[in-house]
C-alpha cells in the first residue's frame, strides 16, 4: 500500500472539519497544479534560480496548506536550491518533487471522495 502523501486527518482538524472548504481547496489545487508544475519545470530547465525559488515557493505554500508535508518539503528544498543558485542540483530535486507530487495527485480523488466530493 502506498503511504498517504496528504494527511487528511490533520487537514480536517486544522479547518475544523469544514469538508466543503477542503473540497474547494482540493479542486483549486487540481486546477492550479499542472500550470505551476510546468512553470517550475521550465524554470529548472532554464536554470533560472530566481524563478525556481518563486515557483517552488508557491508549490510549498499550496502543499503545506493541504497538509502534504513531504511534498511541501520537496518543494522547500527546490526553493532553497533556487535561492542559492545551486543549478547542478535542480534536476535531481525537481525529479524528487515531481515523483512525490504525482503520488499526491493519485491520492487527490480518494481524498475528495472521503470529504464527500
Amino acid at each position: 500500500m502506498s503511504k498517504a502523501i496528504m494527511d487528511l486527518t490533520e487537514l480536517l482538524e486544522r479547518v475544523e472539519n469544514d469538508r466543503e472548504l477542503i473540497r474547494d481547496l482540493l479542486l483549486i489545487f487540481k486546477e492550479e497544479f499542472p500550470r505551476h508544475l510546468q512553470a517550475l519545470r521550465d524554470a529548472v530547465d532554464s536554470m533560472d534560480g530566481e524563478k525556481v525559488a518563486a515557483e517552488a515557493h508557491t508549490m510549498k505554500g499550496m502543499l503545506s496548506t493541504l497538509s502534504a508535508t513531504s511534498a511541501a518539503s520537496a518543494a522547500a528544498r527546490l526553493e532553497q536550491l533556487g535561492r542559492n543558485r545551486k543549478v547542478c542540483e535542480f534536476q535531481e530535486a525537481y525529479a524528487a518533487f515531481e515523483n512525490i507530487s504525482k503520488k499526491l495527485l493519485l491520492q487527490l480523488d480518494t481524498c475528495m471522495a472521503e470529504v464527500g466530493g
Partner: peptide, 16 residues
C-alpha cells in the same frame, strides 16, 4: 495573497 489555495483558505476562515 497570491496563492489561490491559500486565498481560498484565508477567505473562508475570515468570512466565517
Amino acid at each position: 495573497e497570491d496563492n489561490r489555495v491559500n486565498q481560498k483558505l484565508a477567505l473562508r476562515l475570515l468570512e466565517k
